[in-house]
């Protein structure tokens, strides 16, 4: 049964020590930020990552600040590890052949593996936001949030917005997960697939920063990675979310198709 295999995959993914370590490392980012700001008594100077100077006034901003810090490297790194491991990790343990003769079904296994990676994206974004909100509330005053449009929303509303931001960031990472899944079908060495996936995320961000490749920017999967601030407007601007979701869906379609094309016909020799 599909649900049986998916549940088993999720249970194993999230009980695995490596996954837990990745999530702990992500949770450490807001904690480090909050503690560093708390220890430095001087108020924010306005420099540093977005939202950072607002932390001392309102602890709720720790989560978003941590996301800004984590998005360029830490988040893609953890997603690269999990997505790159999907198929190649099974191949390297030799368990791929036993899953396939069980028979898991190649298409079914690929879908389950992708859903596992997607679940990790959600867990990763939530971990940063939740850990940030908790440590922020513990170390700093908490109150109504002044959003980017200048209006103020109450704490409950703000928490909902932060959850929405976590969702936005998780969706942003789905394209990268599909790329990782495809790389993972190409090799029996998980580290190779992980490194290739992470390199792709770095390359995409570099291209996105070069004015010479401006024509390419809207097609880069990292293009909307920092646009989640739109959620903090009043009213919420969903336009970039829609564009981003469409872009990620395109990456899922292309790299998903490549992964299927490769995996469904591949000789399993590992």
């Amino acid at each position: 049964m599909f649900s049986s295999l998916l549940l088993s995959e999720l249970r194993i993914l999230f009980s695995r020590r490596r996954t837990v370590a990745l999530l702990v490392a992500l949770a450490a980012i807001p904690i480090l930020i909050a503690v560093a700001i708390r220890l430095a008594s001087s108020p924010g100077t306005g420099r540093g990552p977005a939202f950072l100077d607002q932390v001392t006034q309102n602890g709720l901003f720790v989560g978003v600040s941590a996301l800004v810090v984590a998005i360029p490297l830490f988040l893609p790194l953890t997603v690269g590890v999990v997505a790159g491991d999907t198929i190649a990790g099974e191949a390297s343990h030799g368990t791929l052949r036993y899953l396939l003769v069980a028979p898991a079904g190649r298409a079914r296994l690929l879908v389950v593996k992708y859903l596992g990676a997607a679940a990790f994206c959600i867990a990763a974004a939530l971990t940063v936001v939740i850990a940030g909100t908790l440590i922020g509330a513990a170390l700093f005053p908490v109150g109504p949030v002044t959003v980017l449009s200048g209006t103020t929303i109450d704490v409950g509303e703000a928490l909902l917005r932060f959850l929405a931001i976590a969702g936005y960031v998780a969706v942003s990472l789905l394209g990268l997960s599909a790329i990782g899944l495809f790389f993972s079908t190409l090799t029996n060495v998980p580290v190779g697939a992980m490194a290739a996936t992470i390199s792709f995320s770095v390359a995409s961000q570099i291209l996105d920063a070069l004015p010479q490749t401006e024509w390419l920017h809207p097609w880069l999967f990292s293009h909307y990675w920092f646009s989640f601030a739109d959620i903090l407007r009043d009213p919420v601007s969903w336009a970039s979310f829609g564009d981003n979701a469409l872009l990620q869906a395109g990456y899922i379609a292309v790299f998903g198709a490549l992964a299927f094309g490769r995996f469904l016909t591949k000789d399993i020799l590992a």
Binding site: L5, L7, S8, I12, A102, A104, L109
Partner: peptide, 11 residues
């Protein structure tokens, strides 16, 4: 746990 996993792959 390994056996349960392979078994859950059998539809």
């Amino acid at each position: 746990a390994n056996l349960r996993r392979f078994d859950s792959a059998d539809p």
